[in-house]
Design a protein around this nucleic acid. Structure first.
Lengths: 196, 196
DNA sequence: CACGTTTTTTACTCTGCATGAAATTCGAGC
DNA sequence: GCTCGAATTTCATGCAGAGTAAAAAACGTG
């Protein structure tokens, strides 16, 4: 057994928390619901976490980290001599895949952060910056290579683009359209939209 | 006095509800908080609404309606012979202005709908369709006029664009950047992004 | 200014949910 | 198959927050 039963239960709880968080938001996340999804009795959660907030905190942290690392990894796997604009397209694809199918973690984290109580949000501010930072760098490279529309404020444009990606979790329904179609549309829009 | 004191109090309550809703989400919206923002005692709310859900319901309805009508009006005011792509830019501007400064209603409605309990969401489905419908029509016209990238699925592209606009409420901080800068970036991205 | 009506307040109740504590089951080593 | 610690459950507590009732205040109109 690669990891103990306990570790697996713990992970189930965190996964369940992300699942509920994504659908119900911060305030709407009840431990009883998390427990049900995780197939555990609610008080059992306290064996692993000392409070509801601590659990949510971890779920969000895992999600933010995953969002960042999956994009980073996808970029790392790409040929480094690829034009930045193409690498940006890869990042778009990786991000959407993570957000929409890989698990509820990333989506839950990204969509929940704004609702968190100030203290908790503060705690994740750095992780959020790191997440945006990967993109920021990418856009800077696009700019360096002269592929960015000169009239466009890089920082603002990036946030607009990230918004488009993040909001997909709100409306995309796997039953009604393929993931690839969404990725394709997003990539086209970003390419054309930023192009010089 | 154009409208009675009572009507104004009622409106204050709905406004306050939108305000709280926007920041705390559906489940996190406490009547005590709404009351505080509205400068009213919590039970006074029950004079106007028979339950918390009814209040939230109305706040969302007002918001969705406002989001739709402000864009419609801006379009109606534009010269009708303007190319559709330019009218789309006008819609982008009107939408962002509404969302970011006009009041909390539109933003609250748009961002909260996905969290609502199923029954309530159902009740607003039509309003949401109407809201998207205005845009859908606009994009169709752009397509008719041959200004839409042929490789782009119109419906999907529209949702991606709307996402970009809606998400601005999440990150835009009036203290750190001008509204016009955001509008400008969004318009450029949309124009370039959709262009044939 | 008196009287009915509208609006607001004060003082509750009731319920759902996070959390606590003790009791119980499980599972690895002997 | 017994024992001890880890994992989990069952039962109980306390509080926050929705909702109610009835009194009080404000308002408007003769």
């Amino acid at each position: 057994m690669r990891d103990t039963k306990s570790a697996r239960t713990r992970r189930r709880v965190v996964d369940a928390a992300a699942h509920v968080l994504l659908r119900r938001g911060y305030a709407g996340t009840r431990l009883s619901d998390v427990a049900e999804v995780a197939q555990v009795q609610a008080p059992a959660i306290y064996y692993y976490f000392s409070s509801r907030d601590e659990l949510i905190d971890e779920a969000v942290a895992v999600g933010l980290d995953r969002a960042r690392s999956l994009v980073s990894e996808a970029l790392a796997a790409a040929p480094p001599d690829l034009p930045a604009i193409d690498r940006l397209a890869i990042a778009v694809s990786a991000h959407l895949r993570t957000l929409l199918t890989h698990s509820d973690h990333a989506a839950a984290a990204i969509r929940t952060v704004p609702q968190l109580p100030e203290a908790m949000r503060e705690r994740h501010r750095q992780a959020q910056r790191d997440y945006v930072g990967v993109w920021r760098e990418l856009v800077a490279q696009v700019q360096d290579e002269g592929d960015l529309d000169a009239g466009l404020a890089a920082g603002t444009a990036l946030m607009v683009v990230l918004g488009a990606l993040n909001w997909t979790a709100e409306w995309w329904d796997p039953a009604r359209g393929s993931l690839d179609a969404v990725i394709d549309a997003a990539q086209r829009l970003v390419r054309q939209g930023l192009a010089a």
